[in-house]
Design a protein around this nucleic acid. Structure first.
Length: 203
DNA sequence: GTGAGGATGCACT
DNA sequence: GTGCATCCTCACG
């Protein structure tokens, strides 16, 4: 088991910046999940940005509710919810207080401890799958991602701007046309662990 | 290889 | 009651 170096953990200030910036900056970072005595880690290779009450794809678009109030809170907390009755989504809250925004973690490249036994060759190349692989559920909702011993994010690789691809977000057909067209999905160029939805995987 | 549809729980009109 | 920031299976040919 690898001991983690506390000095590598990302500070709240990292998340308090512009959401697009944070979404790109999270690429290449390492996410660590501790399950009992096991450590499971992966590098973030794909993210999406959901920005504010004016973004019709963002859950906070309709204002503050019990479900979305976490996004109005301080940066660096998790926003985790259940979708389609069976999949959890992992988001990190960004920007200042009372500005609801978050970055969705869409795919990881396994580093250590990922269970490949369950036939899936890529158990972390989609937001629902990575949460299953890391055993992330609503009990981890609203935790401080920089200050707990169950789930946190550390520095790992620096990704150069020219190695970052951008494209349209996925699964938001309910949003306005303008918002659907925003290129707010980011991934690492040529990385085989990015989620593979052919239609949306345009350059 | 491609596309349609089902699974399934919970927040919210 | 409705619909969802998904994924897997099963037809098709």
């Amino acid at each position: 088991m690898i001991l983690s170096d506390k000095s590598q953990i990302l500070e709240p200030a990292f998340y308090e910046r512009d959401t697009i910036l944070v979404a790109k900056a999270l690429l290449g970072k390492k996410i660590i999940r501790k399950i009992k005595n096991n450590i499971v880690t992966g590098m973030i290779v794909e993210t999406e940005a959901y920005v504010g009450e004016t973004d019709s794809a963002c859950h906070a678009f309709k204002g503050k509710t019990k479900r979305t109030e976490i996004m109005f809170g301080e940066a660096g907390r998790t926003y985790i919810y259940l979708i389609y009755g069976m999949y959890h989504m992992l988001n990190i809250v960004t920007e200042r207080k009372n500005f609801p925004a978050a970055v969705l973690i869409r795919a990881l490249e396994p580093i250590e401890g990922i269970d490949f036994v369950n036939k899936s060759k890529h158990p972390t190349n989609g937001p629902g799958k990575l949460c299953r692989a890391l055993q992330i559920d609503k009990t981890l909702n609203e935790i401080k991602i920089y200050e707990n011993n169950l789930l946190w994010i550390e520095k790992y690789r620096e990704i150069e701007e020219y190695n970052i691809c951008e494209g349209k977000r996925i699964g938001i057909s309910y949003a306005s046309i303008e918002d659907q067209d925003r290129k707010w999905r980011f991934w690492i160029k040529n990385n085989p662990h990015v989620s593979t939805y052919k239609k949306n995987n345009l350059k």
